[in-house]
Design a protein around this nucleic acid. Structure first.
Lengths: 219, 219
DNA sequence: CCCATTCCGTTGGAATTCCAACATACTTGT
DNA sequence: ACAAGTATGTTGGAATTCCAACGGAATGGG
């Protein structure tokens, strides 16, 4: 486990937990590390899982196959990040996704039930872990809700204005910068990059905003 | 509190908790009921909240105001349902939404920190509560992710096929029914109802599926 | 400095969606 | 059975987006 200390320290599920507590914590949770070769199935859709994973080294993909067998990539998880926690915590009988390794990987698995049930030793970090987990899932929840707000608008113009006006409000100023380049913003809002660029220019011509690179100002 | 027993029994956060345990549970959590008049602000955007609400009677709206002051309704919460739990659990400094009552309402507030910290009396329901909360938020998470998968497709046809093919897979059969009428499905997929109807007909003519009301079959 | 690459804005035609309007079931209440 | 209301399918023109292609600006090596 020592080899993975660097990775473990970057896991946000463990944030606020002292490095010296990590070892007892992991044994208390009876966490297990498993090594996978490239291209292995970690979880298969249809399974029921009560544990979730943390990538210590390597990379995994969360993928979804539709009725016709077309596979789409939902997420790419690198070292220090976790996967499957929502499915484990939701206790659903059949997970709708599969998880596969894209490289040789070391994965840490944690049983989510062990988190919520305080152990006999009254470990102090149990509460912290649960709070961290709630934090992580809730933050994701908020981000997803926000994104749906934007992508549910019908036109590119509406999507842009919805997104930019929330960013302005978040920044507390009419001048603000966004964390995306054009292609990323287009993907985020689910529109064409070039059409979005054109619409940005039109918004500028209509006197609604100005921009330079990822610096924007609403007028 | 007794007046609200019927409502409390429908709260899914309390599912699996015995009715006789509700009273001690609520006092252990130092939960408080507050009465609101119609049109009151329960939470205001910009605040920081460490407690979330449960509607015992009446109704509240979760709303978001953009930079220009346009208000959009994110959610409508009736008796037995909760609001704000993601914001409380995410511990964000400024919530991006406001919550207002649309009718006279009785709201129950619970401090989310009291949930995660076991009390001195070792209440048995603490674990259950935390698991329920994780469950609820995770399920919402999964539902939101799924919806984004569909709405991120570019064309109505792609959205329909993505949605229907996942429903077919979920049902484990090429024949299945969906929980939406046409207008609801259109709203869910963020497209026009009439355009969607037309596209459904085209998909039928193209031999990809058949349907009758909310009964579908993929071919 | 030059070359390759990436990012961004622009443009025009094809494809798609929106929108309003209308027709036809199907439902519901009386 | 009838009327009113709701849900769904259809259609045509307007508006929007997609898509491919291109050019210029900015960036990063070598």
């Amino acid at each position: 486990m020592k080899n993975f200390l660097a990775a473990l320290k970057t896991v946000n599920l463990f944030s606020g937990i002292n490095e010296s507590e990590l070892q007892p914590l992991l044994s208390c949770l009876s966490a297990k590390v498993t090594h996978y070769e490239k291209g292995n199935n970690v979880f298969s859709s249809g399974e029921s899982i009560e544990h979730f994973g943390i990538v210590l080294s390597g990379e995994v993909l969360v993928v979804q196959d539709d009725y016709y067998g077309n596979r789409s990539i939902l997420d790419k998880i690198g070292a220090g990040n976790q996967f499957g926690e929502s499915f484990a915590c939701a206790e659903i009988k059949k997970i709708p996704v599969s998880v596969i390794t894209t490289t040789e990987s070391d994965l840490l698995f944690i049983d989510y039930r062990k988190l919520t049930v305080p152990c006999t030793k009254a470990c102090t970090f149990h509460n912290k872990l649960v709070q961290n987990l709630l934090n992580i899932i809730s933050l994701k929840n908020i981000a997803l809700t926000q994104k749906i707000e934007f992508t549910s608008k019908r036109t590119t113009r509406e999507k842009l204005l919805a997104y930019l006006s929330i960013e302005a409000k978040k920044a507390g100023s009419s001048r603000f910068s966004i964390p995306f380049n054009r292609q990323e913003l287009a993907d985020y809002l689910a529109v064409e990059r070039s059409a979005m660029s054109a619409e940005l220019s039109k918004l500028r011509d209509d006197g609604l905003l100005t921009f330079h690179k990822n610096q924007f100002e609403l007028l």
